[in-house]
Structures are given as structure tokens and as C-alpha cells.
Design a protein around this nucleic acid. Structure first.
Lengths: 345, 345
DNA sequence: CTGAAAGCGCTAACAT
DNA sequence: ATGTTAGCGCTTTCAG
């Protein structure tokens, strides 16, 4: 049987309480006893039993990340795991453990309450893919310590954080204008694709601000796949007047877009500038390598970790905000002038 | 304060022990009392405290997945997360929780022991990227319930499971021969790239078996990136005699290979068959879509979950094996004959 | 079929 | 600065 706190106390000629204090770094213990206790621990090869400790402390020092995984999740949604990695790092720093639970939105509601009721974890990080109005009510009613990753698309009480995709759109547009491109087109996802829409909004707001007109046909909407990007780009090229730069809502569309430009012998970046969002999976693989407005999802996860720890400490805290700033990465697809401007955001 | 087992007992007019038995489905409780107890639980909105339960039972019903994450892990290594998803699913089925811990190989050694000493978890799943000889010794000495994902490349006592990449190589080669291709080349990673080497070995064994000769220049080794794939393919094309089919060790190399073939106006699959391994990230995006020998990493994770649960129950169990079979997915890059054979493995 | 009682190993309030 | 004591909430033997 493994040694317990009592064994240590006995060997050190002291009480269990004192041993506990030593372990928890209490100041009111004399130098000597600390040494005696530590010596005893070493001799007995003592290790505190976390299950007992968690029980006594009424805290497990852990948080659970609730999301919807399933087959191919790793391939289809690497961002999720990037977030998870960041989250783990932040929690680890404060010696909190990270648990993972995969669920549907329907199941999530019951599960989240279960976690709190049964003290399975001190707090929850919930991916927006599993939230619902019901969950919102529950979380509100039972004051469940949580952070939602991703802005909910309905009125809610959640604490949530997200990336500012609108700002990312602004940055892309602003940068292209700075490069000297004069007429921009946007090829992106459909109305339901919130991320694409936010990026588009950012783009439009900049164009508006700079009094750059954008013909209807310069805003294309389609699926987020290569073929659709190809088709949308073709459509833009069909217009009488053509833009001199393209903003692609994501990497898949950008891939199709670049193919279409190649097939039409349009030179990037000279005849047409191309920019997209995110690094993944093609931006550095395509020829030319694509300039992007990148989003640091790892950092988003890290920040989330910080926040959930704060929430666990101070349950009243309320956040609803965009926390991670996009950043511009200039590559070869946007160098219009010989010397591209060193515009840093 | 939340209701405890005592409150339930009092309300149900029985003892805590009985309530406990009801919760744990003991057979020796009368129908009546069960109902009374359940009624009381409902009235009091009772939920068992897992921290107390874990403590009393001396088991946490959880396992920790130890691996090395860090920034861009989600993008660079989606397989890891695919495994994780499968693992979570298997554990979840048996109401076990999954924890995640990111560490370097150096830290892993200390950590793994710590987990067991302090009862942080019942078992560990360890990714091969963080194993070491030291860890092997430790795990052996302290009989730590574990499964390593990935075959260690040194003599060891670990319980490990892996994919059979050699078999995958065999399948690729066999299939190409079945298609009617007669001369195969392999472009892959360097000596250090074990996965590539295993695949190559599989290929060679089949060629050997079928008395197909393979010139030295038909086996190229380079980095696992697109450019290298391109260069290796070029090299092969430089030969006097050319193969009529190519096996690419992975998707990145395949991407470069396909580009090289395009640039040389070599038609796939007519003039040159192309096959690679894994679905990710390009196999379905390239033109033509690539035939692949796919590896179900999700399933590997799932199996791992099964095994670690068995190990927790029966610590003596020892596994060292390849558990997940590769499967052939036929697409457009290998249809040499009009009617390709329906060869199923 | 049920209940009393003795833990599980650690923490924390309160004395001293 | 240290020890005493009383839990934390559930499980599990064992006696009835």
C-alpha cells in the first residue's frame, strides 16, 4: 500500500495537519519541520492522493472542453484542435487538467448540467457547434462557469469569445488598396457561412470608406470548395470590366481561384492580386504562395484558457468579445509594386 | 448546499448504504425501497458527487492521453486528433473520461509516473512521439497501465499498437499490378521517415514476389513536401526507361508528383498510374482524384480505447500489434484498363 | 433485504 | 508554529 499523509506525519514526528501545510506551502511552518517532513516524504516515497485531495478541497482543478468530434474531425476541422492545444497550454500553466467530451448539440445540454451537478469539472469550455437556446438558459439559470468559443448567432447570456472576422476582412481590403490595387472583388461562401459574411462585411466597409465602388458581380457567393472557387473566379472574369485583385473567403476557394487564374493565363500578382484568410491548408503550397490575413486560433484557445480560469475564480465575470486579432502575412500573391509597402497592423 | 446521500436516505426513510446500493444497481434491494429512494432523489434533485465517489472507489474512471501538441499541431498533425477523437468515442461508451496532456518526451517520463503515483488517472495512452527508453523502463518497473500509439523503434516492454504500413505498401503495389501496370516506381521520404520506409518495404516485397524488377532510380527519397515530390518525379522521368505507375509515400509528395506529370504532359492514369496513402489533405482535391490506400486512424484511436480499458481491468494483458487494417480506395488516378478490376482487400 | 459503522486520504477551522 | 478535531460524500463490509 502506498504511504499516506499519516505515515509521513508519524515518521516526521508531527501531525497530518502539519504535513498538509508543508505540502501546500503554508508560511507558518518552521524551517526545521519542513525539512523533517520533506525528508520523511522522500523516505516513504510519498505522493499525495489527488482523488482524496480533490474531494477534500471540493475542486478538481480541471475543465472539460465540450465539442462535437467524430470521424474525420481532425481533417475537416483542424482549427478545433488548434484551439484545444492552446487551451491545454493555458490550463497546464496553472496546473489545471483538460478533459475532452464529444457530443451533439442535443446531448450537450444534459451533459453540461451533469458535469456541474456531479462535480465532474470546475468549468466548461463549450464549442459554438454544440450550443443551443436551451443550453443558454440552463447555463444562465445554474450559473455554470463556462466560456463559449465562437459568437452565438442568437441573443444569449453566454460568456463567449471569438475572432474578429470583420476586422480581418477590413485588413485584407485595406492592405490591397495600400498595394495599389484599385478594384477589388470578393469570392466567398453563401449567406449561411457566417465567417465568410463577416469577412465580406469588413471588406465592404473599407471600400465604402475609401469610396471604392464594387459592382454586384464582384461579390460572388458559392460553396467553400475548390471547384466553386474556380467557378466564381470564372464568373468574375466574364465581366466586361475586371477587378485587379481578389479576396477569397477561405483557402479552398482561393485554391480554385488560383487555378482559374492560371488557366486563363492571368499573372499573379501582376495582373491580379490574390489574398485569402488563414494559413491552412494551401496558402503556402500554392504557386505563388498566398498572402493571407491569418487568424491565430491557437492563441484563441490559449486566451480561452485564461478566461475560464478567471471565471472559475470569479464567477461573476462576464465576457463577450473578440479577443484574438488577425495578422497580415505578406507573400507573393500581392506584390504589385516592386517594393511592397511594409504595412503592419 | 446540494443534497447528499444522507438527505436522500433520510427522506426515503432508509440508510445511506441502501441509497448507495440503489445507485449502483445492487440486486438485493426490494422493488419498493428502490422506488422510494428514487422518488426522494428526484424530490431533492440529488446528484452524486463524483469527487466523493472517485475517492471512495479509488478510481477516477478516466484516462489521460499524453502527447506533444503545441502551436500548429492541429494543422501539421491532424492524424493525432483523429486518433484522439476515436479514443474519446471508445472511452465515452464505457463512461470513462478522456484527459489531454501535452508534453515533451523529456517531461513525459516524470509526468507518467506522477499520474499513477498521485492517482490522477486510471491509465494512460501515450503517443509514440513522447516515448523514450527511460519511459519504457519506468512503465515496466511500476506496471503502469498504458498503451503506446505507434510502434517504438527500439527494443521495449511497452504495450503498443500501430498501423501496418508495410501491409499498406503491399496493397498499393499489388493493386497497381492488378490494374495492369508493369513497372512501378516509389517516391518517398528518407531513411528516418519510418512510415515511408515501411510502405516501401511492403512495395518491394510484392515486386519481389512477382518477379518485377525495380531499377535503383525508381526508388527516390526526399523530403515530405510538395517541391520534393516534384523533383523526385522529374528525376524518375529523366530515366531512359520509364515506369508506368508511381507510388507516392504520402499526400505531399503525391501533390508534387502530380504537378510534375502535368507539367510534362503525361496523362494520369493512362500513361502513368498514381497511387498514394491516406486521404489527407489532397487526395480528393487533386485532378484527377487520387486512388489511395487509406488508413483509418480514427479506428486506431477507437481500438486504443478498447485496449486501455482492458488493460485497466486486467493489468497483465500484453499487446504489441498492428490493429488497424489499411483499405484501398480506388479513384481516377489508376484506371488503366477501361474496366478496372474490382479487387477488394 | 437493510443498516451500522468504519473507512477512503486530505484539508481547514480552531485551539494551544 | 503546531496539533486536535471534525468533516468532505460515498462505498463496503459485516451483522442482523
Amino acid at each position: 500500500m502506498a504511504a499516506t499523509i499519516k505515515d509521513v506525519a508519524k515518521l516526521a514526528g508531527t501531525s497530518a495537519a502539519t504535513v498538509s501545510k508543508v505540502m501546500n506551502g503554508s508560511y507558518s511552518i518552521s524551517r526545521e519541520t519542513v525539512e523533517r517532513v520533506e525528508q520523511a516524504m522522500k523516505e516513504l516515497n510519498y505522493h499525495p492522493n489527488m482523488r482524496a485531495r480533490n474531494f477534500a478541497r471540493q475542486s478538481g482543478r480541471n475543465v472539460i472542453f465540450v465539442t462535437s468530434l467524430g470521424k474525420d474531425a481532425g481533417f475537416l476541422n483542424p482549427h478545433m484542435f488548434e484551439i484545444m492545444s492552446g487551451l491545454e497550454a493555458a490550463l497546464s500553466e496553472k496546473e489545471y487538467a483538460l478533459g475532452i467530451k464529444s457530443l451533439s448539440a442535443k446531448e450537450a445540454c444534459t451533459y453540461v448540467k451533469h458535469v456541474i451537478d456531479t462535480k465532474l469539472a470546475d468549468g466548461l469550455v463549450i464549442h459554438a457547434s454544440v450550443i443551443s437556446r436551451e443550453l443558454d438558459e440552463m447555463v444562465e439559470e445554474y450559473k455554470i462557469p463556462h466560456i463559449v468559443i465562437g459568437m452565438p448567432d442568437f441573443p444569449n447570456h453566454f460568456c463567449w469569445i471569438d475572432i474578429d472576422n470583420c476586422l480581418a476582412g477590413e485588413m485584407a481590403a485595406k492592405y490591397l488598396l495600400e498595394c495599389g490595387y484599385q478594384s477589388l472583388a470578393f469570392i466567398g461562401g453563401r449567406e449561411e457561412d457566417k465567417i465568410s459574411m463577416h469577412r465580406l462585411n469588413g471588406v465592404l466597409s473599407v471600400l465604402n470608406e475609401h469610396d471604392v465602388l464594387i459592382p454586384k458581380a464582384y461579390v460572388q457567393q458559392g460553396d467553400s470548395v475548390c471547384d466553386s472557387g474556380y467557378a466564381m473566379m470564372k464568373e468574375v472574369l466574364l465581366q466586361k470590366e475586371q477587378p485587379d485583385a481578389i479576396i477569397c473567403a477561405n483557402n479552398y476557394i482561393a485554391y480554385g481561384c488560383v487555378n482559374a487564374l492560371h488557366d486563363n493565363n492571368i499573372e499573379i500578382p501582376k495582373q491580379m492580386g490574390v489574398i485569402t484568410f488563414d494559413e491552412y491548408p494551401f496558402s503556402r503550397i500554392l504557386k505563388p504562395m498566398l498572402s493571407v490575413v491569418n487568424i491565430d486560433v491557437y492563441d484563441m484557445g490559449f486566451q480561452t484558457g485564461k478566461y475560464i480560469l478567471m471565471k472559475i475564480k470569479k464567477p461573476n465575470l462576464h465576457v463577450q468579445s473578440y479577443i484574438t486579432l488577425p495578422s497580415l502575412i505578406v507573400r507573393d500573391s500581392t506584390k504589385r509594386k516592386e517594393e511592397p509597402p511594409l504595412y503592419l497592423y
